[in-house]
Design a protein around this nucleic acid. Sequence first.
DNA 1: CAAATAATCTATTAATTCTATAGACTAATT
DNA 2: AATTAGTCTATAGAATTAATAGATTATTTG
Lengths: 137, 137
Amino acid sequence: MLSRKTKYGLKALIYIAKQDKSVPVLISEIAEKEHISKKFLETILLDLKKFGILGSKMGKGGGYYLLKDPKEIKVASIIRVLDGPIALLPCVSLNFYEKCDDCPSEETCALNKLMIQVRDNALSILEKQSLYDLASF
Amino acid sequence: MLSRKTKYGLKALIYIAKQDKSVPVLISEIAEKEHISKKFLETILLDLKKFGILGSKMGKGGGYYLLKDPKEIKVASIIRVLDGPIALLPCVSLNFYEKCDDCPSEETCALNKLMIQVRDNALSILEKQSLYDLASF
DNA sequence: CAAATAATCTATTAATTCTATAGACTAATT
DNA sequence: AATTAGTCTATAGAATTAATAGATTATTTG
């Protein structure tokens, strides 16, 4: 399951993507409209900023805005930033790979092979779907 | 990601499925061969027993054995027993459904629709793959 | 019956992650 | 200068995960 953090992050990004691009969006507005704790949302948006998905402006007229074309922001990358691996096992993760220390060989591991399939299947959707798709739903 | 518990449980079940069916398998044997803490494995196998996947026999010559044909034991059901939902959001889970309290309507929720796709895609593999398939890899 | 074997049960702990909050601080605008 | 709004640090509470400990019960075999 995705963490709440990730779900909130996705919702916030969708919210921002739906707004007029020329005006930064307030944290407090997103928090209210999407029913998310404002303080919690702050830390989430800060993460998204750190990874270059969002930009921000302080002071009056400030807020958060997308740094890239919504069509270029894929759901997979958002999940990776906020939730970590999409794969079901570390030994099968493309971006967060870790060897299973209980496993002598990935070559002969049936679980490894199965989870690669599951991963690729999930990615075939999540790497394709963008913020644009979600916002225009 | 799957919990270690689930990974260990899957590995143990595969191990059992590979053995001669007429002889119960020892926890200690599985623990040693698969490099899993024996005590931890005890609780995992107990869970699998509780759910009717495994049977057990105490005393000398005892151990754990499969209660069903390995072809009938699907990976999806094992994951559900040990890990819970396969879906990425509660509002999209078939077996552990929960409404998102921050979400006014699932009908108009883009995330909901997307995660249903991801779920169905994962299930198309996990509901098909059985212990038999994994054991004969 | 006694000894050995092996699962069962209860419980507790340690570690980690998740969720959320608090408060002081900095930057920008008017 | 006042107001607005994001930034930073930190911490705390809750939940979950991972693992361990020790006593107990069931079964087989000699």
